[in-house]
Write a protein that binds this DNA or RNA. Structure first.
Lengths: 234, 234
DNA sequence: CGACTGATTGAAAGTGGTCAACAAAAGTGG
DNA sequence: CCACTTTTGTTGACCACTTTCAATCAGTCG
């Protein structure tokens, strides 16, 4: 593993407060790997063997049932994912695939749990990580249940614009069909939702979004920190 | 606080592995209260002041936005709720109201966080608690995105029947409009979904559900541990 | 009993999904 | 670099599912 990556990991909230021996032990057991795009990393139902730490690239977390698929989240560096399954030593509830060529560190779940039992700082950090993950999921569920398709898209765009620093224009970070799935609708519905938002201050041209009337969009969307997630979402 | 309740709390997974001094300190700061039915315990947006431990009764966790409301979960004894907000020292994302007369222990969030920083066993247990909560929420979101209304109701009924020990007949634990909200539909839609399930082995009479053809229901619902939650749901 | 709440039903409207066709991009191979 | 294929996005027509509104019915509680 490159020294630089090791430092990136060390600086993650999850690992920052570990003792050095505990961290070294974890890293010793870890694999640093580069995966090509579109590779299935995890299939839902498998028992959690590794905690994943994203260093570069992007990973989609998705779920399926019968013939249906849905995107649950897009993970971007530098973060960990599927900590909950590792901690519970339980089957993954979501599948994961790379969206781009990605560099990912795999830490055996056994070692994570061991580090965890031994190192108090790590346990505390894990609680913070999980709590934040939990809260983002609550937001996702609330969003799905309380807003309709057009409102979900509007809120999403509003939040991306804020994340980019309150800019008027930005480029969608992922394919539209992925966004559609994340927002809980079909690509066709997404396309129509974009059209419907033209009356509410949003202009779309390919992947480029321009907010032409922030007040109008805000009025429709009623953005709210209790509903809208700030980071790590497609 | 009654000795008996204290023991119930002590035996919760969350508190079981604490040192006795740490537990005693927590309990010393705690309030044991009885609330009448239909009382608003928590309003979303408030900063988390207390960890709640349910001893008796039932509490609804719900969320609202604009004029719309939705039930996120029903909490039953003996469990804790809104641990994540306490840990993050952040605003509640959900509101809570009692459904019945309920006995609840309130532990100041400050003390929880303190116990937490000091007691390793408590931190470990919190991680397990949060992980399980996280996973149940993933299931809830998957359920909403992957199944339609009729399938969600069918899956719910299938799971209640299993929880009751695989019985054919059981009584709905909560009002139908609450169930409808939890399942992400209107009461009218729930009513129609029940009717639609008559063709799939479910008979409903008031609050009494009878599964007349388990195979048919199972075929429709395709129950799946990666989607269906086993406990603590209305 | 009468007022109230919750559940059900019907009719109408709306939202989003499906299917099919097409357009636009992106990737592939000569 | 260009023709070709494949994938992604858009649009229209239609349909299914769900909601809304209104009316009715069934309990519950004072």
């Amino acid at each position: 593993m490159r020294e630089e990556d090791r430092n990136d990991i060390r600086n993650l909230p999850l690992f920052r407060n570990m003792t050095s021996p505990a961290f070294d032990a974890l890293m010793h057991a870890a694999y640093d790997q580069v995966f090509p795009a579109q590779l299935e990393l995890i299939q839902q139902g498998e028992v959690a063997n590794f905690l994943h730490v994203m260093l570069e690239g992007a990973v989609e977390l998705y779920a399926n049932w019968q013939e249906r698929d849905t995107t649950m989240a897009v993970v971007q560096p530098v973060t960990t994912f599927i900590l909950a399954a590792c901690m519970r030593d339980a089957p993954y509830l979501m599948s994961a695939r790379t969206l781009q060529r990605s560099r990912i560190v795999l830490i055996p779940a056994v070692d994570v749990r061991a580090a965890f039992a031994r190192d108090h700082g790590f346990a505390l950090a894990a609680v913070q990580d999980l709590s934040e993950g939990y809260r983002n999921l609550v937001r996702h569920a609330k969003n799905l249940k309380l807003r309709n398709a057009r409102e979900r898209l509007g809120a999403y765009l509003w939040q991306r614009s804020l994340d980019a620093g309150g800019v008027q224009g930005f480029v969608l970070p992922q394919e539209k069909r992925l966004l559609a799935s994340y927002l809980g609708m079909t690509p066709e519905s997404l396309s129509r939702a974009f059209k419907a938002l033209r009356d509410h201050g949003v202009h779309i041209d390919g992947m480029r979004v321009t907010i032409t009337d922030a007040a109008a969009l805000k009025a429709l969307v009623q953005p709210n920190t209790l509903l809208d997630t700030t980071l790590n979402i497609p």
